[in-house]
Design a protein around this nucleic acid. Structure first.
Length: 122
DNA sequence: ACCTTGACGGTTC
DNA sequence: GGAACCGCCAAGG
Protein backbone atom coordinates (compact mmCIF):
# COMPACT_ATOMS: atom_id res chain seq x y z
CA UNK A 1 0.00 0.00 0.00
CA UNK A 2 2.71 2.42 0.88
CA UNK A 3 4.67 1.46 -2.17
CA UNK A 4 3.69 4.39 -4.34
CA UNK A 5 3.70 6.98 -1.63
CA UNK A 6 7.15 8.25 -2.50
CA UNK A 7 6.16 10.74 -5.16
CA UNK A 8 4.80 13.71 -3.29
CA UNK A 9 5.73 17.01 -4.86
CA UNK A 10 5.35 19.89 -2.51
CA UNK A 11 3.35 21.66 -5.15
CA UNK A 12 0.12 20.10 -3.96
CA UNK A 13 0.75 21.21 -0.42
CA UNK A 14 1.28 24.72 -1.72
CA UNK A 15 -1.77 24.77 -3.97
CA UNK A 16 -3.89 23.61 -1.10
CA UNK A 17 -2.61 26.35 1.16
CA UNK A 18 -3.21 29.02 -1.44
CA UNK A 19 -6.80 27.88 -1.71
CA UNK A 20 -7.26 28.93 1.92
CA UNK A 21 -6.60 32.61 1.28
CA UNK A 22 -9.94 34.36 1.76
CA UNK A 23 -11.42 36.45 -0.99
CA UNK A 24 -10.41 40.07 -0.62
CA UNK A 25 -7.13 39.20 1.09
CA UNK A 26 -3.59 38.55 -0.09
CA UNK A 27 -0.64 36.56 1.24
CA UNK A 28 3.11 36.66 0.62
CA UNK A 29 5.06 33.84 -1.01
CA UNK A 30 7.01 33.33 2.19
CA UNK A 31 3.87 33.31 4.26
CA UNK A 32 2.38 30.56 2.13
CA UNK A 33 5.59 28.57 2.33
CA UNK A 34 5.56 28.76 6.10
CA UNK A 35 1.92 27.78 6.39
CA UNK A 36 2.47 24.93 3.97
CA UNK A 37 5.15 23.55 6.23
CA UNK A 38 7.99 24.65 3.98
CA UNK A 39 9.67 27.46 5.90
CA UNK A 40 12.04 29.48 3.80
CA UNK A 41 10.88 28.01 0.53
CA UNK A 42 9.24 31.11 -0.89
CA UNK A 43 10.75 30.56 -4.31
CA UNK A 44 9.27 27.14 -4.48
CA UNK A 45 5.86 28.70 -3.97
CA UNK A 46 6.38 30.83 -7.04
CA UNK A 47 7.36 27.81 -9.03
CA UNK A 48 4.36 25.87 -7.80
CA UNK A 49 2.02 28.65 -8.80
CA UNK A 50 3.43 28.66 -12.30
CA UNK A 51 2.48 25.01 -12.57
CA UNK A 52 -1.08 25.07 -11.39
CA UNK A 53 -3.05 22.54 -13.44
CA UNK A 54 -5.41 24.08 -15.91
CA UNK A 55 -8.85 24.08 -14.36
CA UNK A 56 -7.54 24.08 -10.82
CA UNK A 57 -6.74 21.31 -8.43
CA UNK A 58 -9.05 18.85 -6.72
CA UNK A 59 -12.00 20.49 -8.34
CA UNK A 60 -11.21 23.93 -6.99
CA UNK A 61 -9.53 26.88 -8.61
CA UNK A 62 -6.29 28.04 -7.09
CA UNK A 63 -6.37 31.83 -6.48
CA UNK A 64 -2.78 32.41 -7.55
CA UNK A 65 -3.42 36.12 -7.94
CA UNK A 66 -3.84 36.53 -4.18
CA UNK A 67 -0.14 35.83 -3.69
CA UNK A 68 2.26 38.75 -3.81
CA UNK A 69 5.77 39.36 -2.53
CA UNK A 70 6.81 40.50 0.92
CA UNK A 71 7.16 44.07 -0.23
CA UNK A 72 3.50 44.15 -1.01
CA UNK A 73 4.11 44.24 -4.74
CA UNK A 74 2.96 42.20 -7.68
CA UNK A 75 5.90 40.12 -8.78
CA UNK A 76 5.39 40.21 -12.53
CA UNK A 77 7.05 42.77 -14.77
CA UNK A 78 4.96 45.91 -14.97
CA UNK A 79 2.42 45.81 -17.78
CA UNK A 80 3.15 42.22 -18.69
CA UNK A 81 0.03 40.19 -19.44
CA UNK A 82 0.09 38.36 -16.12
CA UNK A 83 0.73 41.58 -14.24
CA UNK A 84 -2.32 43.19 -15.73
CA UNK A 85 -4.44 40.12 -15.17
CA UNK A 86 -3.41 39.86 -11.54
CA UNK A 87 -4.04 43.51 -10.87
CA UNK A 88 -7.45 43.29 -12.44
CA UNK A 89 -8.43 40.21 -10.48
CA UNK A 90 -7.31 41.77 -7.20
CA UNK A 91 -9.20 44.97 -7.86
CA UNK A 92 -12.17 42.83 -8.71
CA UNK A 93 -12.11 41.72 -5.08
CA UNK A 94 -12.02 45.29 -3.82
CA UNK A 95 -8.31 45.17 -3.09
CA UNK A 96 -6.67 48.54 -3.61
CA UNK A 97 -3.68 48.35 -5.90
CA UNK A 98 -1.68 51.56 -6.21
CA UNK A 99 0.64 51.15 -9.17
CA UNK A 100 2.30 47.85 -8.35
CA UNK A 101 1.68 48.06 -4.66
CA UNK A 102 -0.83 46.79 -2.17
CA UNK A 103 -1.03 47.85 1.45
CA UNK A 104 -0.26 44.66 3.33
CA UNK A 105 -1.32 46.38 6.49
CA UNK A 106 -4.86 46.51 5.18
CA UNK A 107 -5.16 43.47 2.95
CA UNK A 108 -2.79 40.78 4.16
CA UNK A 109 -4.44 37.59 5.27
CA UNK A 110 -3.96 36.95 8.96
CA UNK A 111 -5.18 33.50 9.94
CA UNK A 112 -6.63 33.28 13.42
CA UNK A 113 -5.38 30.82 15.98
CA UNK A 114 -7.90 28.12 15.16
CA UNK A 115 -6.90 28.22 11.51
CA UNK A 116 -3.25 28.02 12.44
CA UNK A 117 -3.83 24.99 14.62
CA UNK A 118 -5.60 23.33 11.75
CA UNK A 119 -2.91 24.20 9.26
CA UNK A 120 -0.09 23.00 11.44
CA UNK A 121 -1.81 19.60 11.40
CA UNK A 122 -0.51 17.81 14.41
C1' DA B 1 24.55 12.52 -10.54
C1' DC B 2 25.66 17.42 -11.72
C1' DC B 3 24.04 22.04 -13.08
C1' DT B 4 20.80 25.68 -13.67
C1' DT B 5 16.62 27.96 -12.68
C1' DG B 6 13.43 30.50 -9.81
C1' DA B 7 5.82 34.64 -9.87
C1' DC B 8 11.37 35.03 -3.13
C1' DG B 9 13.30 37.21 1.23
C1' DG B 10 16.40 39.66 4.30
C1' DT B 11 20.31 42.54 4.79
C1' DT B 12 23.12 46.05 3.53
C1' DC B 13 24.59 50.26 1.42
C1' DG C 1 12.67 54.46 -1.43
C1' DG C 2 15.69 51.23 -4.30
C1' DA C 3 19.46 48.41 -6.14
C1' DA C 4 22.92 44.86 -5.40
C1' DC C 5 24.10 40.56 -3.08
C1' DC C 6 23.59 36.29 -1.22
C1' DG C 7 21.10 32.38 1.00
C1' DC C 8 17.56 28.92 0.36
C1' DC C 9 16.84 24.13 -2.05
C1' DA C 10 13.12 21.47 -4.92
C1' DA C 11 12.48 20.60 -9.68
C1' DG C 12 13.67 19.81 -14.20
C1' DG C 13 17.06 19.34 -17.72
Amino acid sequence: MATTESIKPHYEQIWQTVQLIPKGKVACYGQIADLAGLPGRARLVGKALSKIPKGGWQGKLVPWYRVINSQGKISFPINSPYFLEQKQLLQGENIVVLGVKIKLKDFQWQPDYTELLFLLKF
